[in-house]
Design a binder for these strands. Structure first.
Lengths: 368, 368
DNA sequence: CATTTTTTGATTGACGTCAATCATTCTGGA
DNA sequence: TCCAGAATGATTGACGTCAATCAAAAAATG
C-alpha cells in the first residue's frame, strides 16, 4: 500500500528518540521523560507541548530499549485445569514448544494446575498467587461471584488478567480469548443438517455436563440450527456423560443398536476415545454422521479412519499465542493489536494439519 | 506444567548474561563475544568451552539488548499483486492495522505492487529492490526459472525470502506461508459430496486459469475426492473464467438453466461477485449447493443470504502475522518457533467472524 | 517582599549487547 | 630460537530508555 511507503519516507532515515521529542517540544529530556512516564509535577502547558511534539514527530517508544532499561521480564502464569486432558495437553505442549522463544523475549510462563470446574479450587489458586508478583495471568475461568474477590485482589496488585477458553466474570478480566461456543454448536448443527441432505434423521446428543458453560452453549447453538433449518431431523434427549469415555462409548452403542437407530451422533463434550472405540466395532447405517469437538490424537485418527466425519476445533495453539500477545500488550500498557475473531475451526478428513498434535496421554483419561 | 516452574527456579533469580557465560567458560568477554557472533579467530577449544558454558547456564541472547545495540530495524517488503483484488486488499488492510505495532517493534513494511501472474514483471520487481537493502521480503510467488536469477541476487545481498500464498521455487526461499491448495480442493469436494447425501449430482466447476498453480491444485484435490468417494456426482467440464466476474456470472446462469440443470457449483477461482449476482435473481433447485473461495465482503454477505453455502478461506491475516514472525526470526538467525500447519478454513453461515473484513473495493473488479 | 512550593533542567549510571581498538600472550614453522 | 600469525584479554563508547539526584528557576503563597 502506498501509505506504508510514504510513512517510511516521512520518518526520514531514523526514528525519533525521546531526546528529539524533548528538543522539538522545547523542554528538557527530563521533562519529556516525566510526561511519558507519568511521573507528575509537570505543568499542563509542558504536557501539551510534549504530546504535540510526539504527534508531530510520530514518536513511538522503543520497547526494546525500555524493557532493557527497566529490566522488564514478563512474568506470566497460565491457570489450567489439572488432569489428563487431551485438549489442555495440547495447550501445554504448545507452551513447551514455545519456551525457548519465550525466554528470548524475556517472558517466563508458569503453568499452574487448578481443580477442573471447581469454583472453590479456582478461587484458592487465585488467592495463592496474589503474592507471586505475576505481571499477567491467563485463566481458564468459571462464571461465579465467588471468584470475584480473588480476582479483585489480583487486579489491585496490578496483575493483568485474561480469560482463556472459558470466560471469567467480564468485569474482572481485560480480555477473553476463546471461541463462541454457541457458534460452534451452530456449526456442528449446520454440517450435520447438511449431511442429511433433506432426509429424515435421528440424532443422539451427548454432553459432559450442562453446568459447563461451553457445553450448554454448544447444545443451544446446535438446537437452534436444527430446529430452524432442518425440520426432518429429530433430536433425542441429550445424555450427560461427565466426559467419561466409558459412558460415552456405552451411550453410543445403545443409540446405534436401538430401534429405530440413529442417523447421527453429536458429542458436545469429551470422552471421545470411548466413542471411537464403540464405532470401531459397531455397524453403522449408511451415511451415518458423527461430529465431535477438539482435534486430539484419537479424534484425528478417527477422522482419518472414517469413524468420525467432522471435528470442530478451537485451535489451542492459536489461542495460546494470542493470549501471550495480548498479555504482553496489556502489560506494556499498549493497546491490543487488531486481530480477527477466533472462529470454531472445522476439520474434515481433507484439511487436517499434517503434524498431528503430540500430547502424551493415556487413551482412557481424556476430557474436553 | 511442572517443567516451566522448575525452569524458572533453575535460573535462580536472573538470567545469565554473556559476561556470566564468559566467566563460566573461563574466557574473556571478548572471546565469548567472538564465539557467539562468529567473528572468527577463535581456537576450537575456546569455542567449545563457550558453547558448553552456554548450555550449562541456559544462556539465551537478550534480543532486546542486541537489537538496541546494533540499531536493528527490520526492513521488510511485501510483494503483492497489484490491482483491485479483494483478497489482497485484506492482506493490505491487515498490514495497515498492524502498522502502529510494527513501528514499536522496529519493523518497517513496504508494500510493493507487482503485476499479477506475470513472470517478467515479478522478476523486474525483484531486481529493482536488490539495492533497497531490505532485510527480508515476502513474495506472492510464481513457479518459474526466470525468477531464480533475481532471487539469487537478493539472497546474495543477505535478504531473507519467504513465499506467501503462492510459493516460489523451493531452493530460493526460506519458507512458504500458505495453505495446501490440494487440501483446499479436497475439502470443497468433501463437503459438496456430503451435501448430496448419496443423491445424484451434477457439478459445474469454474476456475480462473489452470496456469495458476493454486487453481490447478484445488481442482485436482476436488476431483480426487469426488471421484473416490462420491460416484453419484458427475463433474462437468470446468470453465475458465480468468476470474472475470461477468464471465463467472454468465457461466453460472447457463449452468442453472441448462437441461438437466446442475445440483452444485464450485468456483475454484475468483470473480464471485458475478456468481452472487446471478444467484440472487435465479431460481435454484432444492438443496442446490455452492462453494467458493476466500471470505471477502461479498462472499461473506452471500453466505449469510444463503446464495453461497460454503466459503473456503485462507485467513490472510493469519498468514501475514506468520510471515512477519518467520521473517523476523530468520533475520535474527533464530529458528522458527513451532507453529501448526495453515489449514484451509471452512466457513458456513454459523462460524463467521463477527468483524467483517473491511476492504475498499469496487464490486466488479475482484480477483482471487 | 520573603518564603514556600512547583516546575524545570542537567546529569548520571544502569540495562545487555555490539563492534571496535589495542595490547598481550600463545603457537607453530623456518 | 626467533618471528609471524593467530588467539586472547581488557576496555570502551554507543544504542534508547528508565530512574534517580541535585540544583536552579519559576510560580504561588502569605
Amino acid at each position: 500500500m502506498k501509505a506504508s511507503r510514504t510513512d517510511s519516507i516521512k520518518q526520514t532515515g531514523r526514528k525519533p528518540t525521546l531526546s528529539d521529542v524533548a528538543r522539538a517540544a522545547g523542554v528538557s529530556y527530563a521533562t519529556a521523560d516525566r510526561v511519558i512516564n507519568d511521573r507528575g509535577n509537570v505543568a499542563q502547558k509542558s504536557v501539551r507541548k510534549v504530546h504535540d511534539a510526539m504527534a508531530e514527530l510520530g514518536y513511538v517508544r522503543n520497547v526494546a530499549a525500555a524493557n532493557l532499561s527497566r529490566q522488564r521480564t514478563y512474568r506470566l502464569a497460565f491457570l489450567l485445569p489439572k488432569g489428563r486432558n487431551a485438549f489442555f495437553s495440547r495447550v501445554r505442549a504448545h507452551l513447551d514448544g514455545l519456551s525457548e522463544h519465550l525466554v528470548a523475549d524475556q517472558i517466563s510462563v508458569d503453568v499452574i494446575e487448578i481443580d477442573a470446574f471447581e469454583v472453590e479450587g479456582l478461587g484458592n489458586s487465585l488467592l495463592s498467587i496474589v503474592d507471586a508478583a505475576y505481571d499477567g495471568i491467563a485463566v481458564v475461568g468459571l462464571q461465579s461471584v465467588d471468584i470475584e474477590a480473588p480476582l479483585r485482589a489480583l487486579r489491585e496488585q496490578g496483575v493483568v488478567i485474561v480469560g482463556l477458553v472459558s470466560d471469567l466474570p467480564v468485569d474482572y478480566r481485560s480480555a477473553y480469548i476463546g471461541i463462541d461456543n454457541i457458534a460452534a454448536g451452530r456449526t456442528a448443527g449446520r454440517l450435520l443438517g447438511l449431511s442429511h441432505g433433506g432426509r429424515k434423521g435421528r440424532v443422539q446428543i451427548l454432553a459432559g455436563s450442562l453446568d459447563a458453560r461451553d457445553h450448554a452453549d454448544r447444545l443451544r447453538g446446535f438446537r437452534e440450527v436444527i430446529g430452524q433449518d432442518y425440520p426432518n431431523i429429530e433430536l433425542l434427549e441429550p445424555v450427560m456423560t461427565l466426559d467419561d469415555a466409558r459412558k460415552v462409548g456405552a451411550v453410543v452403542q445403545q443409540a446405534l443398536t436401538a430401534e429405530p437407530g440413529v442417523t447421527a451422533v453429536y458429542n458436545v463434550g469429551a470422552g471421545n476415545s470411548g466413542l471411537v472405540a464403540t464405532l470401531e466395532h459397531c455397524d453403522r447405517p449408511a451415511r451415518f454422521f458423527c461430529v465431535v469437538h477438539e482435534l486430539v490424537p484419537h479424534t484425528h485418527r478417527a477422522l482419518m479412519h472414517k469413524q468420525v466425519d467432522l471435528v470442530i476445533d478451537q485451535r489451542p495453539d492459536v489461542e495460546v499465542n494470542r493470549a501471550l500477545t495480548i498479555l504482553k500488550a496489556l502489560i506494556d500498557g499498549r493497546d491490543i493489536p487488531p486481530m480477527q475473531d477466533l472462529v470454531p475451526t472445522i476439520y474434515v478428513r481433507d484439511n487436517l494439519p499434517s503434524h498431528i498434535p503430540d500430547t502424551n496421554l493415556t487413551e482412557q483419561g481424556d476430557h474436553d
